[in-house]
């Protein structure tokens, strides 16, 4: 909406200003345990904003992973469970098949989804389960102290690749979105990032579309979100979001990969 630029004095104009941004209703007003500058907090909020806007809070069931985001259920204001490591897609399958009218989504990190949970995510996607998967790719295991993840990029130093990830010894970073896009059961895959305001808005748009697909019974949707982990990238939050721009995006290009 265009703001007519009345000659406003330094304090506010006579018209009371409206609150345009605040805590979503689907989010609990509690301090989160995440490290300073961690992307999980942003992504949690975006999901809750989408759930508010789609008015599905009372129909939504979230499945939290094992990892930093295991405590997501303390921050979400809707029914939530927590699956064993790597198994949220299987748990979500069980829920969705029993409650097809409910909106079911999994929230998983790269260790949960791309390492121990690879079989579950591939087969859940391949069955075209009508669920939404939020895949947070921060290129390390955070909860356990910064080990290499399947998405750690080549040369990246971690607790378990102290001299940098080496392809011969540690294999190559896993491109989950491109891999899943090949499966017929998958209707929508997009990779976004939360490293700047523009990308945060694009991430929200992608999340909303992924939830809408589910509401419209279109099938399996996944949003991969590049997210900063300042603590285990050994950087400041500001450097971390820059590193996404300069390094991560080179290997994990942003954009719609399918649908």
């Amino acid at each position: 909406m265009k703001i007519t630029n009345k000659t406003s004095s330094t304090n506010q104009t006579s018209k009371a200003l409206r609150k345009v941004f605040s805590l979503p209703a689907s989010m609990r007003d509690v301090a989160m345990h995440y490290c300073s500058g961690c992307g999980h907090g942003i992504i949690h909020r975006l999901i809750c904003e989408v759930i508010d806007e789609l008015e599905i809070r009372e129909k939504t069931i979230g499945v939290a992973p094992v990892g930093c985001a295991v405590l997501a259920y303390d921050y979400w204001n809707f029914d939530t469970t927590e699956a064993s490591h790597g198994r949220p897609p299987a748990v979500a399958t069980g829920i969705k098949r029993i409650l097809p009218e409910r909106i079911v989504f999994t929230y998983q990190g790269d260790g949960d989804l791309a390492a121990i949970g690879t079989a579950e995510i591939i087969h859940t996607a391949n069955r075209g389960e009508n669920i939404t998967v939020i895949f947070v790719n921060n290129a390390v295991y955070g909860m356990t102290g910064g080990q290499m993840a399947p998405t750690t990029i080549l040369g990246q130093k971690t607790e378990t690749t102290p001299w940098g990830r080496d392809a011969q010894r540690d294999g190559f970073p896993l491109k989950i979105s491109e891999m899943l896009a090949l499966l017929s059961g998958v209707v929508y895959v997009e990779r976004t990032a939360v490293n700047n305001a523009k990308n945060v808005l694009l991430t929200k748009k992608a999340i909303k579309k992924a939830f809408l697909n589910q509401i419209e019974n279109k099938g399996f949707s996944l949003v991969e979100i590049l997210s900063p982990c300042p603590t285990y990238w050994r950087m400041s939050p500001v450097e971390a979001v820059k590193w996404i721009e300069t390094e991560m995006v080179k290997y994990y290009p942003l954009g719609v990969i399918k649908g």
Partner: peptide
């Protein structure tokens, strides 16, 4: 493994 976790989901629903 996936089967028992699907049962976990169906049961909690």
């Amino acid at each position: 493994i996936s089967a028992i976790n699907m049962v976990f989901g169906a049961s909690l629903a």
